[in-house]
């Protein structure tokens, strides 16, 4: 198999394209700042070298003109950069849906050591380490982790977000055309970390429907035993060795994801007490949106 695409400067989707544009924009602007210093530094050091005969003013130490220039220059550049930063950051909030047409495909993603589980709640199926989706349509992802903190990333499609135990993060992506892309966890989580990769496969609409049908009938049925096996610390390859658990499942319960987010097994009364119920999160799965401080997300979401 050819190596899947992994370079965001050669993007395959809406978000990554915007990121590439923004990347080169900043590189260009920073070039205006860095370039002169790279040229001036050796130039000044040479021009005013000890053995030269340039002007020497040992006591000169201030000039309002220079002062205005050296404060003003960076302030202007940073102001311009800040404008672009604000615009770009709010436009590409990974938690917000993309401004593209088409019925969104919902996938719920659970991070394990060292594999990813992709749940298709509208179709009752799930896959391991393979995210299959149709090209051109928005891909709405919800993420959590059943182990330590992980970071979910498909570079050619867009940015990464953390997946954290007991919390839901969101990510919105889309692919422009069919293709096979590399995805991975980027947050170190032990000795299987470097093998925690998956394939993101964008299919034409018809092929995606066909895949849904095949998987719903041919895949192995989901069971608690399967869930326990996935939750063990192993890569997909280690997990399936000498075992026919497989990497695709049917008959996946609709509340699997919300059950994983809210640890009902540990704490039957979690709805009334736990922070996990503290937020008012409208959506198929209840549970707070992840925020930096661990508090419930702001209601504006």
């Amino acid at each position: 198999m050819d190596s899947p695409d992994v370079n965001f400067l050669d993007p395959e989707g809406y978000v990554a394209q915007q990121q590439r544009v923004h990347f080169w924009r900043i590189v260009a602007l920073m070039g205006l700042v860095v370039g002169p210093i790279l040229v001036l530094t050796p130039l000044i050091a040479y021009r005013y070298r000890f053995s030269g005969n340039s002007t020497y003013t040992p006591d000169w130490h201030f000039s309002w003109i220079w002062e205005a220039a050296i404060w003003g220059g960076p302030i202007v550049i940073v102001t311009i950069l800040s404008y672009f930063l604000w615009q770009n950051t709010t436009a590409l909030d990974p938690f917000e849906p993309l401004p593209i047409d088409g019925e969104p495909v919902r996938v719920q993603i659970v991070g394990y050591d060292w594999k990813w589980l992709f749940i298709y709640p509208d179709h009752g199926i799930a896959t391991l380490d393979e995210l299959v989706f149709p090209e051109g349509r928005p891909l709405n992802l919800e993420l959590t982790s059943e182990t330590v903190m992980q970071s979910f990333h498909i570079p050619v499609l867009g940015g990464q977000v953390y997946a954290m135990e007991g919390m839901i993060s969101k990510l919105h992506l889309a692919a422009d055309r069919p293709g096979v892309f590399r995805g991975r966890n980027t947050q170190y989580n032990g000795h299987g970390f470097h093998r925690q990769q998956f394939v993101a496969r964008a299919l034409p609409e018809t092929a995606f429907s066909a895949w849904l049908d095949t998987t719903s009938t041919d895949a192995r049925p989901w069971s608690d035993a399967v869930h326990d096996r996935i939750a063990e610390r192993s890569t997909l390859q280690e997990m399936t060795e000498g075992d026919d658990t497989g990497a695709a499942f049917r008959d996946v319960p609709g509340d699997l994801f919300s059950g994983i987010v809210g640890p009902m097994d540990r704490d039957p009364d979690w709805r009334s007490r736990d922070r996990r119920d503290a937020s008012v999160e409208a959506g198929p799965a209840d549970g707070p949106v992840a925020t930096a401080t661990g508090q419930a997300a702001d209601p504006a979401r």
Binding site: D267, D269, W270, R273, D274, G294, Q295
Partner: peptide, 9 residues
């Protein structure tokens, strides 16, 4: 203060 609501069971 952050942990106040985190009473678990």
């Amino acid at each position: 203060v952050v942990m106040l609501p985190q009473v678990a069971d």
